[in-house]
């Protein structure tokens, strides 16, 4: 059995990818499962989806906690989640990034597994015109773990999305061809903890709050939605006339004003929606790629 975990952001087609992978495998005569992980987070938030493929009937309903393959659709997700958590020793990490596998492995400090990388953003922009990377990343995945055949997947894409199938197939094929793979025998699958607070001390029934009451007003500030961002607002303060529209229209209250009436983005919470840049009458703010 091959177990795959996919990381991306809400709205990037992570769940659809897992589903297409499973349906393709089933059409190939295999047995497969795909399932999402549900939470309150919305478009832009890190999300995961899962896929299992086997030659035999799969009866387990357990979550996938020790995956054979981890696929990361959006490089900025690596800041927010521990993508390698639970990856099987000798497992495969497939990431959308402009870095080479060696560079990524060094950056993440991972070893003892196979690392595959592909610049799916560039490929998606080239063939689809938008940075929608889910189909490209399926190509990368199939390169390192052929759980389904390309032909079947192409057929499925043509059937499901006739209008955009061709461009997606081109992106998928390009990603398949361009994916670089390297195996790292030495080291352990670990990843530096990037501020992500691991919840280890969950309350017991004796210590949990009465009636689920939240006693700390505004305690959501403990949750850093800056991790959701794939584009960031960049400020050219010299042009700013301090009109305050960016501040007013920010749905996150993530723009602060200091004593000099200078407006500053709080990148801990900015989700990168781009409203401030769009609404700024003086072109002070521009949105730039987060990973650049």
């Amino acid at each position: 059995m091959i177990e795959v975990r996919m990381h991306g952001r809400g709205g990037q087609g992570v769940v659809a990818s897992a589903e297409m992978l499973a349906v393709s495998a089933i059409r190939d005569g295999k047995y497969a499962q795909a399932f999402p992980s549900f939470g309150p987070e919305r478009r832009g938030a890190p999300v995961v989806a899962f896929c299992r493929v086997d030659d035999h009937t799969i009866i387990t309903r357990e979550p996938i906690s020790v995956p054979d393959v981890v696929v990361v659709l959006d490089p900025t997700v690596l800041r927010a989640v521990q993508a390698t958590a639970g990856l099987k020793p000798g497992g495969k990490l497939v990431v959308n990034t402009c870095l080479r596998p060696e560079e990524l492995a060094r950056d993440l400090g991972v070893g003892g597994c196979t690392v595959a990388t592909v610049d799916a953003n560039r490929i998606a922009l080239q063939f689809i015109g938008q940075a929608i990377t889910n189909t490209a990343m399926l190509g990368a995945l199939l390169k390192v773990e052929p759980v389904a055949s390309l032909e079947v997947l192409y057929g499925l894409l043509r059937e499901r999305f006739p209008a955009v199938a061709d461009m997606n197939i081109q992106a998928l094929q390009a990603a398949y061809d361009e994916t670089s793979v390297a195996e790292f025998v030495m080291g352990d699958i670990v990843m530096g903890d990037k501020r992500k607070k691991l919840v280890t001390d969950l309350p017991t029934w004796r210590t949990i709050d009465h009636a689920c009451i939240v006693f700390e007003p505004g305690s959501s500030v403990q949750y850093y939605t800056g991790d959701w961002r794939s584009m960031r607002p960049d400020w050219n303060s010299e042009k700013c006339v301090k009109c305050g529209k960016c501040w007013m229209y920010c749905p996150e209250a993530a723009i602060n004003v200091d004593e000099h009436r200078d407006y500053k983005v709080d990148y801990d919470y900015c989700k990168g929606c781009g409203i401030c840049a769009e609404e700024c009458p003086y072109g002070v703010i521009v949105m730039v790629e987060e990973c650049e």
């Binding site: 919305r42 007003p217 959501s220 500030v221 949750y223 939605t225 996150e252 993530a254 990168g272």
Partner: peptide
């Protein structure tokens, strides 16, 4: 003063949150 704190889980560009 902000009475609706950052860190809420609204989508990017959420109109209701604003």
């Amino acid at each position: 003063e902000e009475y609706f704190a950052p860190g809420h889980r609204g989508c990017q560009g959420c109109g209701p949150a604003l």
